[in-house]
Design a protein around this nucleic acid. Structure first.
Length: 558
RNA sequence: GGCCCCGUCGUCUAGUGGACCAGGACGCAGCCCUCUCAAGGCUGAGAUCGCGGGUUCGAAUCCCGCCGGGGCUACCA
């Protein structure tokens, strides 16, 4: 077989644009001249085979796709996507990619379907900032009938971990922020970025840089000494010491350009290219940098709106220049959402504020409350509504109403929203949510505990505290003679009671009236004897305890 | 240092030239309700709208300068 099996090929319209899909097919082994150049970039660090194809003559069909078997990673068929122009072959183990490489998807900008993405890097526990970014993306997508894509930006070999990636899935799953496509992992598409780098080099938009870290540090220090902004000297553009074994690829920033774009939150942005030094796009280990991989993937995934944290605002011009140089279409717009701040107004950091998103689950927060709070952190509907269901958020969310300044994460407000949402839950539902936090209660007792808890817990975990008396006998209280008299009367009256809240309440009420005691006179000593300190209303407090245990505690205090 | 973003009660925010001696919410204080704790109701304290100049009859809202905070300036994202 030569390259592409006919029955696997989808023909693209003739004269496809650079970067457009030409065909989807099966590659069983081929290689072309690009392979040599690629070899110069060093051994690929990833495990995915990279197969290269010669440009199709005249931008035509699949027949022209390369037919050499020389370098296809030692046999084995591989599903690939073939692109015109730079002639990249994309390992298409994720079949989903094929759908979006349809030439038909390239429409006029205004008609672009809404496609947004969240692209976290698994380099630490995912925190509330990432979760909110995901939320805003999801809400925007839902509001506009678009797609939400999850991409794992794991191009930092040193810091990315599988555990952190799991936290991302776990956290997003818990919040119900499910993605329509993905997850795509950048580490699995290293050759894709490498091909793009080759293409840029060939076009004169990028070059190899052999400077050592020491040399770069020296340049930086010199710049600092002379009090001028540091930008890479471009020494390797003029005179590269190409005998050195290690190099990076740098993007050659065009001079004198103004990079302009529309940000849905900040408005019109303009940056002078002259202030930007040539950024590294391929590291010496063969991995792309964030500023290179991200815009490529955004373009290939046809992301229409890039919604991300404000820390990326300054990166945007660099990424846009790369997109332009590659001949890809820019995202329709960006939206740089403000940072979430710690109480001291510094940026929330993974180190100092280890707010793992799933930690909130363990603390007893409802995912819908978390979503509600996160949505309000930096966004408001313009009305005075504060409590939202996810459906309401999806209907009302608007990037234009997102704040421009950073917001401090306020646990107390979260608590209030959580408590409010807990109170709004159907009792049976609350029982189910409470179950993991009260393993000591069987489902029947749990259901009976709900009325006692529902309006007095801020988090599900609070239930444990409020019901602590169930498992922990209080100290025997020192009661006055009057208190003992009332307690004794209550104990007697309850001996024959049906052991449920309403009968207990009725009996105590009857006793209280017949003796002329106030409620507190009768109930306080009972509570002291049975629960010690605070507890739910006394009839609930009592009925949640086995009768023998309850009356036992009362007798003990007499 | 350079470039960029931001700046209304403690916190989240409403506010886009007059209806704002700045509204809501959380939190806080008090009162009511009440068997403790909550929930609920009512009341209250809390912002010279970062500062200084302008423009205007009139500015939180427009302009300029400054200050403060943050981000980027990495072979981290």
């Amino acid at each position: 077989m030569t390259g592409i099996a006919a029955d696997e090929v989808e023909e693209a319209p003739a004269g496809g644009q650079p970067g457009h899909l030409l065909a989807v097919g099966l590659c069983s082994g081929q290689h072309v001249e690009l392979l040599q150049r690629e070899a110069e970039l060093g051994e690929p660090a990833g495990g995915v085979g990279h197969r290269l194809v010669r440009p199709a003559a005249g931008g035509g069909g699949g027949d022209d796709v390369g037919d050499s078997r020389a370098g296809c990673g030692g046999g084995g068929e591989q599903r690939v996507l073939v692109l015109v122009a730079g002639l990249e072959l994309v390992p298409a183990d994720q079949r989903q990619w094929a759908r979006h490489f349809s030439p038909l998807a390239y429409g006029p900008m205004a008609d672009r379907p809404v496609r947004v993405r969240m692209a976290p890097s698994p380099t630490g526990p995912i925190h509330v900032g990432s979760a909110r970014t995901a939320l805003f993306n999801v809400l925007f997508a839902r509001r506009h009938g678009g797609q939400f894509i999850l991409r794992i930006d794991d191009t930092d070999l040193e810091r990315s971990t599988a555990a952190d990636e799991e936290y991302i899935y776990d956290g997003l799953g818990w919040l119900g922020l499910l993605w329509d496509e993905g997850p795509f992992r950048q580490s699995e598409r290293l050759d894709l970025y490498r091909q793009h780098a080759v293409r840029l080099i060939e076009a004169g938009h990028a070059y190899r840089c052999y400077c050592t870290p020491d040399e770069l540090a020296a340049e930086r220090e010199a710049a600092q000494r002379e009090k001028r902004p540091f930008r890479y000297s471009r020494r390797c553009l003029r005179d590269a010491p190409s005998e050195r074994p290690s190099f990076v690829v740098r993007f050659k920033v065009p001079g004198g350009a103004a990079i302009e774009f529309e940000d849905l939150i900040r408005g019109h942005m303009s940056f002078a290219s002259d202030l930007i030094g040539d950024p590294v796009i391929i590291k010496s280990d063969g991995f792309p940098t964030y500023n290179f991989a991200s815009p490529i993937d955004d373009a290939l995934l046809e992301i229409s709106h890039v919604i991300r944290g404000e820390e990326h605002l300054s990166n945007t011009p660099t990424q846009l220049m790369i997109v332009d140089a590659l001949g890809y279409e820019r995202p329709q717009a960006t939206a740089h959402i403000p940072l979430i701040l710690a109480p001291d107004r510094t940026k929330l950091s993974k180190r100092r504020h280890p707010a793992l998103i799933t930690q909130f689950r363990d603390w007893g927060y409802l995912p819908e409350a978390m979503v509600n709070y996160l949505a309000l952190l930096g966004w408001n509907p313009g009305t005075e509504q504060e409590i939202f269901t996810i459906a309401e958020l999806e209907a009302q969310f608007d990037l234009a109403r997102v704040q421009q300044s950073g917001a401090i994460f306020d646990r107390q407000k979260l608590d209030w929203i959580n408590a409010t949402q807990i109170r709004a839950l159907p009792p049976a539902e609350l029982a189910a949510r409470l179950a993991p936090f009260l393993p000591g209660l069987d489902s029947a007792r749990l259901e009976r505990a709900v009325p006692a808890l529902q309006e007095r817990i801020k988090t599900l975990a609070d239930g444990r505290e409020l019901l602590a008396y169930l498992w922990q006998e209080p100290e025997v209280p020192a009661l006055s003679a009057e208190e003992k008299e009332r307690l004794a009367a209550a104990t007697d009256a309850l001996r024959a009671a049906e052991w449920a809240p309403e009968p207990i309440e009725a009996i105590l009420e009857e006793l209280r009236e017949s003796r002329g005691w106030s409620r507190s006179e009768l109930i306080n000593p009972i509570r002291k004897a049975v629960a010690g300190g605070n507890s739910p209303p006394i009839h609930h407090t009592l009925s949640l305890l086995p009768r023998a245990e309850a009356t036992g505690r009362m007798e003990r205090a007499l």
